[in-house]
Design a protein around this nucleic acid. Structure first.
Lengths: 117, 117
DNA sequence: TGACATATATAGGCGACCGATATATAATCC
DNA sequence: GGATTATATATCGGTCGCCTATATATGTCA
């Protein structure tokens, strides 16, 4: 079931979603793409070309920390850990998201704010 | 009250919101920025530099039609009308938006899909 | 006269995200 | 043995959404 989402609507929230995944425990990149796809019910297809630069930029900002660990087989994995500042940034982004989606809802459903319409 | 939203989260849905405004009747550009600000409870500050190019592109795609009308005073106003194709595109965008925000909700709230977590 | 609100318009730029491509390792299949 | 696929990370170049800055013209009010 491929419910591919219009890319123009998907912008901006990937950093929040990735950090949200890390809230539940340290993870490596490839794992995140899989988990995001599963948890979003196949809605988000986070690409490698998006994810890895995103993780690097989060690391630069001190929102995540990385460490390498060998896997049972294959290439060693680069795990990411959400820092304290990362948790703070995440909760801010969540608040922002909720305000944003509430506002969209208000416009779409025609809810007027105190002015009865 | 200035609840300015992080721009990186606001991307992508402006075309939908603008068409939604036009669903309630023909409007001119400046009017839309005011109404969007009001209907979103001061969350969306749609700028002229965003709106007018957006309206032009919607017109090119045949989703809206424009006509000029003189105002009681000041510059003549350019009204926009949502076409049939525009209404169709709008309802698609609304569906897309709802699927997207539902998916974000699922990730944020940790709702697993049938796999009990 | 000069500031401000109304009203539309474009150029230039920034940043998010993706496609294409490259890399290395291991398993599977023929 | 060779080809393909899955795992795993990485970068470059490009597209596209939105904004800042700027320009334009008109009317009002101090």
């Amino acid at each position: 079931m491929k419910r591919e989402i219009d890319r123009s609507l998907v912008s901006g929230s990937m950093a929040m979603l990735v950090m949200k995944l890390l809230e539940g425990g340290d993870k490596y990149g490839y794992e995140m793409t899989e988990e995001l796809r599963r948890r979003s019910d196949d809605t988000f297809h986070l690409k490698a070309g998006t994810l890895y630069p995103l993780l690097h930029s989060l690391e630069e900002k001190g929102l995540v920390e990385a460490y390498e660990r060998e896997a049972a087989a294959g290439k060693p994995r680069r795990y990411y850990h959400l820092t304290g500042r990362g948790r703070l940034a995440l909760s801010e982004k969540e608040e922002t998201w909720e305000a944003y989606s509430r506002a969209v809802y208000r416009v779409l459903k025609g809810v007027e704010c105190s002015a009865g319409a």
